[in-house]
Design a protein around this nucleic acid. Sequence first.
DNA 1: GCCAACGTTGGC
DNA 2: GCCAACGTTGGC
Length: 165
Amino acid sequence: MNVWLFKTEPSTFGLDDLRAAPGATTSWDGVRNYQARNFLRDRIALGDRGILYHSSCAVPAAVALLEVVRAGYPETPSPTSVPPRRSASAPESERPVWYAVDVRLLLPFPHPVTRPVMREHPDLTHSRLLQRGNRLSVLPLSAQEAHAILDLAGVDPAAIRDAAK
DNA sequence: GCCAACGTTGGC
DNA sequence: GCCAACGTTGGC
């Protein structure tokens, strides 16, 4: 089972919004980066876990454990979700460009795990998450990184494999 | 507000 | 196909 980091700006959609969503579940859409899109489309599997991360805010931090409840699917067609045609007479491209997954809140952390705290942990000091200029909104975490974050959050890392509530 | 990183765009 | 300019992300 893989663990993914899902980055979001809480002013747009954060932990509180996820809590309030029906079934504490949301469609993770709107990703407009090809590398992140490839993760959504090809790599993220049903049952994978996620760690919700708040960015571009007063206290950037990992805040919750998530479960992937629906694997990659095309975003609802919209003007920006299918490739542009090369000309008016060209056929529409068959393959959608942008994909989403659905995630459900498994466990809000007892306390957020901030960047300074993460930097102290030997398994996280070199994490991509902490590197400057990391602009990937969805990225894979190693088992060690995921474990370390849960540990710092005061969550039993066994929570990663525990069945949904 | 500043600045680093890096993806995208567009001229050639 | 190269690469400079530009825009966006995101921490601080």
